[in-house]
Design a protein around this nucleic acid. Sequence first.
DNA 1: CCTATCATGTAATCCGTTACATGATTAT
DNA 2: ATAATCATGTAACGGATTACATGATAGG
Lengths: 178, 178
Amino acid sequence: MSSVNLTPTSYLVLGLVAGLGSATPYEMKQMVAASLGYFWSFPHSQLYAESDRLVEAGLLEVDQEEGGRRRKRYSVTADGKRALEAWLSDPAAEGAETRDPGLLKLFFGGLTDPAHVEALALAQIEHHRQHLALYEAIEAAIKDSPDLRFPYLTLRLGITTTRANLEFWEELAANPPR
Amino acid sequence: MSSVNLTPTSYLVLGLVAGLGSATPYEMKQMVAASLGYFWSFPHSQLYAESDRLVEAGLLEVDQEEGGRRRKRYSVTADGKRALEAWLSDPAAEGAETRDPGLLKLFFGGLTDPAHVEALALAQIEHHRQHLALYEAIEAAIKDSPDLRFPYLTLRLGITTTRANLEFWEELAANPPR
DNA sequence: CCTATCATGTAATCCGTTACATGATTAT
DNA sequence: ATAATCATGTAACGGATTACATGATAGG
C-alpha cells in the first residue's frame, strides 16, 4: 500500500476497471484497443504492471481464478473510488504533451532539402486522412449510444484536432516552403 | 559506438546541435526553452544523458573545455550528419502520441458528476486561451525572420491545433452534457 | 492430431524524471 | 563579502517498451 505515485496511466487503469466493474488486464487491453488506444497507446504489458502497482497502493484488489488459467481479475477498492473521484472532480488537467515526430521534422526542415518537407506534408496528409476516415466510421457507429456519450465526445475531440492537422498540412502542401 | 537505438529525443538533440554548429547541453536547453519546449518538453538532464548516448553511438563528438568549468561541447560527426539526413529525408513520421490528461478525464466523464466535466471544459478553455495568446505573441515576433521559417511553421501548427482544441471545449461548455 | 494463432503473462532493459549537488556570477 | 540566483552537471529511481515465454483454442 501507499507511497506509489499515480500517473495518468494509473487513472486510465482505475477508470477502466471502475467502468467495467471488474476486469482482467486482457479485458482492459481490449477496451483500450477499441477506444482510447487510438489516441493514447501503450503496450499491454503495462496494464499488468500498472494493475499490480495499484493493488500495492490499495486502490485495486485482485481476485485470482481457481483452476484453468488462473487469471487475475481486478476491481476497485473504496480507496480507489475515492482517488478516482478526486481526480475526476479536479478540473486541472495540465501537462498535455504532443509527441509528434512530424512536428520535429518540420521544425528541422531548414537542415535539409525543402523537397523533403513537401514529401513529409504529403505523407502527413495521407496519414491524417486515413485516421479521419476511421474515426468518422466509429463516430457514426457510436453516435447514438447513450452510454458511450463520453467516449463519443472524446472521439469528437480527436476528429477536431485531426481535421486541424490535416488542414495545416494541406495548406503547407499547397504553399510549399522553398 | 553502435547499437544504441535512436528515439525522437535523439533526433531532437542531433538536429539542435546540427543547427547550432556545436553546442553545450546548456545551450541546447536554452534553444528548447525558446522553441520546441512549448510542445515537446522534458527536463534538461535528458540533454546531458542523450548527448552522451549519441557520442557512444558515434553520431556526436565531444570536446571538453580546458580549465574553468570544463564544459562539454558537442558537434555532429559525419555519421551523425548521415543519420540526421536519413531521418529528415524519410517522409514517414508515424507514432504521434497525444498524452492529454484532459482527454482522459473527458473519456471517463460518465463516472462522475457531469458538473465536473463542465468545470473541466472551463479550465481547458482558460488554459488554451493563454497558450494561444503566448503563441501568437511569439508568432508576431518571428514572422519575418527568414532563418526561423521552419520554427515559424511549427508554431503555426501549434496554433492551429490549439485553436481546434479551444473550439472543441468552447462548444462543449456551450452544450454541457447532462 | 497438428499447427497456427490467440490469450495471457513475466523478465530485462532503457529511457525519462526527480532529486540532488557544486561551481560561477550578479546584486546589495 | 555575502547571499541569492544562475549555470552546469550527476545519481538514483521508476515507469514504459521490447522481447520473450507458455497455455488455450480453433481450423485444417
